[in-house]
Amino acid sequence: MTERGEIRAEALMKRFGAFVAVADISFTVSPGEVVGFLGPNGAGKSTTLRMVTGVFPPTSGRCTISGHDVVRDAIAARTALGYLPERTALYTDMTVERYLRFVGEMKRIAAAALAGAVGAAMDATAVAHMAQRPIGTLSKGYRQRVGIAQALLGDPDVLILDEPTSGLDPEQAAEIRTLVRGLADARRTVLLSSHVLPEVESICSRVIILAQGRVVAVDAPARLEQRLRPHREVAVRAVGDAGALLALLRAVPGVLSVTGGPEPDGVLRYVVGFAHRTDIRREIAAAVVGGGMGLLALEPVVMTLEEIFLTLIGRPDGGEG
């Protein structure tokens, strides 16, 4: 049985001419879940979301929203849906309020309820004070808020956001991230895409990683990190004798691995590995300083998205970890 708010995609495939944009993608998002699509540019995120939202049908495979087939039962499926396209979809000459009223009418909100629905959507996205401004005069951050307000109209069970923070400056992106996190409540299913790992980590309870039109991994963000890397790592930058520093680091209790050496500028850089769920950064710092070395920095080692994909594509795994 399917429930309200469930998204179920089975073997979605999309071809444009001879080009296969999405090869084979299956996933299920449970009601109330917040799931992220993560993948490099060209991975097939937008194409998949477009099939889910019914922009175009899949070449093969099927998808349902709340049990309604998005192709055969399109109107019912779309009624439960809010969508923020990757490219903003705003009429720049309209005021915020008129634009939202138009989308609300198109979403079949009853005339008597329209003003209330538009007001609620503007409040939820903090754009009410811009209600009478033409959209073309708004900043990018505000335009994105209006786009999200539009998606919220009709109180959909399912919210689909395609790269909600792309093209925004870091401050605006952080605001939108906070906004999106606030939208994810128990009733509402959220599926969003991103090509930035920390963003998905901070919002989603589960990540679906796509590469080259396929699912390469599905997991909770924290466990994904564990799977990708055998242990936690920190980079030590210091000046002094390489051999002595290496010996010092290896002697710290809890250290599992040390790799590295002198950088081109003469500074020593060693990556020290230790178990997940432990934190021995203080001990490492104390050892370096205590050994008479000049400690320059202790930096977290963040895996870039490219490294993640290389690791994952090296050992494909569609399973649930």
Partner: peptide, 14 residues
């Protein structure tokens, strides 16, 4: 040009 066509295609209209 505005990209609004994509939104229209996902609204409950034919």
């Amino acid at each position: 040009k505005l990209g609004t066509i994509e939104l229209l295609w996902t609204l409950p209209v034919r």
